[in-house]
Design a protein around this nucleic acid. Structure first.
Lengths: 347, 347
DNA sequence: TTTAATGGGACAAAAAACGTCCAGCTAGAA
DNA sequence: TTCTAGCTGGACGTTTTTTGTCCCATTAAA
């Protein structure tokens, strides 16, 4: 930050919070446009009155327009968003926090987005957008992308921009149906990625909880074997990180499984693997899908997870995460991770 | 102004006014320190409550300190003042106005200080300080400085910093006693300048309103003649600009004089000359002092005058002012001058 | 010792902000 | 076409903040 901005903040300390708030509102409108006051106030985590006050101002400044369909950002507004992007990151201390997280997690790149997705739903879209931008850059070099499921992954697919179709891209569902909501299954996500980018996709349909015998037999099937080979050739892996218990519940795991996960002290989950607080594999779901070794062979791994509630899981997963991993997260998770780490150091 | 600041102002329009206000308060404290709330509120033209609110904030930001003797600016505060100086000028539009005034008045340099000295007494000090800084630079090259009287000139003398004594400097009273307050006479001012800079000074004592005969005789006196020669060698002339009528009254001019000034349509006054709205000389006081031709021969002329009430006088004087003149004024005068010029153009 | 200034505390009055409705309109779905 | 969900703009009593204006104990200087 330059000396002028430092002096400015010194003379007007209220400015930082105000700027952050307005920026966030403007950004959310941009993301969700057209959107009305009430919907916005819910999604942005503010009262209707406050949203109204700020949007009235934004309109007077010609940064947004209010039509009967809702509010939209003007070209001037988009410009302001771009110009202030780095600055808002600075005053939020996100740039500093990114460096701190890189050290804590032992990886070379972390991107933190403002606010907490646990509190403000729209933040999930911001995370998705950022991840989408990062991916779009990588698409130039890499063509085979394995994707997992989850709501975070779905958020990314929504934010992929529809540019000129890139037929060379191949999206591979990293796992079969894992009992999750269809909309958030790896298969669905792979399809969504392919649709947005104009690429192709490969799905893997295999029911959960097969008997040992049936599973072994299925693995010999050509369709399944083909997928296993594809996993070996994967360039990019994009995945979310889940809380162990939450995932177990969502997947309707058997009592036996839940017991193993519990007793093993599992904290995080990724690609169907459960990790304890030291990053050791506690349990893995017996189903087809990408193997940890295959993930580690990929050129780039993009981990995406946000919200303070995910902090412990992120810390756990990154104990043994492959080094080329890039993490996209939010302020809520980042602050919590730093806080947890500090507490641990004090002991 | 850079793109970042433009975007910032777009998103936070209240910021500009707030920044200006706080900056002005901080600057005034710096200028008058140590100063108390009540005194400050008078001198800065604000209510006690407002001053209190802002100074409490400035203290929390460690920009000022409050002691029993009054408030003082901390080193951090001084730094902020310096860092934001140019920026505050920018957002006040002063930089643009300076260029506009240069065109209107036909001179190469104009310096405008914030606010209006008619409304806020402290602004006079700001003007004095700026003029003092400009002079101090010139002192390196030029040594013979003619000074006139007036409260504005007195303000400059107060703001001259006491650096290492410069014995080479010679201050010459541009005029004899002109019936003004002793404190504001050219003689007194010349002495004050000399004292602050460590230079020498020459005074000219000659009563006003002498008969023609007495005046002619005095001019032959060696003491007086010596001064006349000095005027010829003057490098810098520093002078104020007055309102014609006001000056006439202050100098207790005779009815005859006042009549000439009135009927001639005099608007401005400088060095004892009265000018009408087109810059023509309407009347000149018959007393010893620097001649207009001698002023025009100087290398640099520094005209100093502020306040909306001086706008007409400034416009009048600069109709025929020598080109190397530099004008130091304030926002109040500048805005009024621009306003008057625009009205004139419309007709 | 006196005096004139200082910062801090206090409080009623005024103003602004806030939460929360409703009415009327419109675009898109059925 | 009608219906409906969602939008903006207006309104208004309530709460919170700001404002104007005192007084007081303290302190530094005269």
């Amino acid at each position: 930050m330059d000396a002028l901005s430092v002096a400015q903040r010194k003379l007007m300390p209220e400015m930082s919070e105000l700027l952050k708030k307005r920026y966030q509102i403007l950004q959310t409108i941009y993301l969700e446009q057209p959107i009305g006051r009430r919907t916005l106030s819910e999604v942005a985590g503010a009262t209707e009155r406050e949203i109204r006050k700020e949007t009235d101002l934004l309109r007077n400044q010609q940064l947004i327009e209010m039509k009967t369909a809702g509010m939209t950002v003007t070209s001037q507004g988009v410009e302001v968003l771009e110009k202030l992007k780095v600055f808002v990151r600075e005053i939020s201390g996100l740039t500093d926090m990114e460096i701190e997280l890189q050290t804590i997690l032992g990886i070379s790149k972390v991107v933190i987005l403002p606010q907490d997705s646990d509190e403000i739903p729209a933040v999930k879209s911001h995370i998705g957008k950022e991840a989408a931008r990062l991916l779009e850059v990588l698409f130039g070099r890499y063509k085979k992308i394995a994707v997992t499921g989850g709501s975070t992954m779905a958020a990314i697919s929504k934010e992929l921009s529809i540019g000129k179709p890139n037929r060379a891209l191949q999206f591979i569902a990293a796992r079969g149906g894992l009992g999750e909501d269809v909309l958030h299954q790896a298969n669905t996500i792979a399809a969504a990625f392919a649709e947005k980018t104009g690429g192709s996709f490969k799905t893997l349909y295999l029911p959960d909880h097969l008997s040992v015998e049936a599973f072994a037999m299925m693995m010999k099937e050509p369709v399944i074997k083909e997928m296993m080979d594809l996993y070996d050739q994967t360039d990019i892996v994009v995945h979310g990180i889940g809380n162990a218990e939450e995932m177990a519940v969502r997947r309707h795991s058997s009592l036996e499984e839940v017991e193993k996960i519990r007793s093993g002290g599992a904290v995080s989950e990724a690609f169907g693997y459960y990790f304890d607080k030291d990053g050791k594999i506690v349990y893995r779901i017996r189903t087809a899908g990408i193997q940890l070794e295959q993930v580690q062979k990929a050129s780039t791994i993009l981990a995406v997870a946000g919200g303070g509630s995910k902090a412990r899981a992120i810390l756990s997963y990154f104990k043994n995460a492959p080094n080329p991993t890039v993490l996209v997260t939010d302020e809520g998770a980042a602050r919590k991770i730093i806080e947890l780490t500090k507490k641990l150091e004090e002991l």
